[in-house]
């Protein structure tokens, strides 16, 4: 479980996050949704330690992230996997080298064990036979899969995904969402996903936080979305007239979306 307490983040005069207090549930898909510029990426970067909070604290299973020793921090980092918006695969390395990089750097596994683990992870993300390909030779969806494979190679306890389906077609985006959800459930990972994709929200949102202008203005799950009276949430999820019509029809007929 990951918990934040009154988290503030400012860049100079501009305050991006205003006292975020949230509890991200263990073994669940925790979605942070919100419009562009609402502070989602900043929150994610604070959670993984890429940025330091101006004020407030972050807890990983009741351990204060800010007061961990170097050794504890390194141990925790090995339990964290992250999928970046642009996949962040190392261009000069092949798919196999990308996935085995964390193992090469931090484990004493044999070459055989590493190769087995690489192939295992690639099979898990339904991608085989691309070991020797370079990231530039793969499609966007395939790169995301490799990114997921690299993120889970050390069997993380926490998985962070920054807009995992941006730039993908709706079908591929859904496949990536399902993959992340399956991995989360299989391994009981605490997953936090930043997204502004409406499909992701409705398909995978076990626990959803709506971030609006640096504040959490709504919290619930995908079943609560339809009947929520939160205007910001409704404006965000049902942004187009078509979706609003669909929602109204569903409510009228007593169905869920």
């Amino acid at each position: 479980m990951i918990r934040t307490e009154s988290l503030y983040k400012s860049f100079g005069e501009q305050t991006v996050l205003h006292g975020i207090t949230a509890e991200f549930k263990a073994g669940k898909m925790n979605l942070v949704i919100g419009r562009s510029g609402s502070g989602k990426t900043v929150l994610l970067k604070l959670l993984v330690g890429l940025l330091e909070p101006t004020e407030g604290r972050i807890f990983y299973d009741d351990k204060d992230f800010g007061s961990l020793s170097k050794k504890e921090l390194r141990k925790l980092r090995m339990q964290i996997g992250m999928l970046f918006q642009g996949s962040a695969l190392f261009d000069s390395m092949t798919v196999e080298e990308n996935i085995r990089f964390p193992m090469d750097m931090f484990t004493t596994m044999t070459e055989k064990e590493k190769l087995y683990r690489v192939n295992d992870c690639l099979t898990r993300v339904s991608l085989t036979g691309v070991n020797k390909n370079y990231p530039s030779e793969l499609s966007g969806g395939m790169q995301k899969r490799v990114g997921i494979a690299r993120a889970i190679v050390l069997n993380p306890k926490y998985l962070f995904c920054d807009e995992p389906n941006s730039g993908l077609d709706p079908k591929t985006a859904l496949t990536i969402d399902e993959l992340i959800q399956d991995i989360t459930e299989e391994n009981r990972i605490t997953t936090i996903v930043n997204t502004h994709d409406m499909n992701s929200v409705m398909e995978t949102g076990d626990h959803i936080f709506l971030l609006y202008q640096g504040r959490i203005t709504w919290e619930g799950n995908r079943n609560d979305v339809l009947h929520s009276t939160n205007e910001t949430l409704q404006d965000f999820i049902f942004a187009s007239p078509f979706l609003r019509k669909l929602r109204d029809t569903a409510i009228l007929n007593g169905k869920s979306i």
Binding site: M78, F84, Q85, A88, F101, M105
Partner: peptide
């Protein structure tokens, strides 16, 4: 380029 493409962030998160 590695900074801009978040490669450095990816390594930092791994603990490098």
């Amino acid at each position: 380029g590695m900074r801009q493409k978040e490669h450095i962030d990816a390594m930092e998160i791994m603990g490098v």
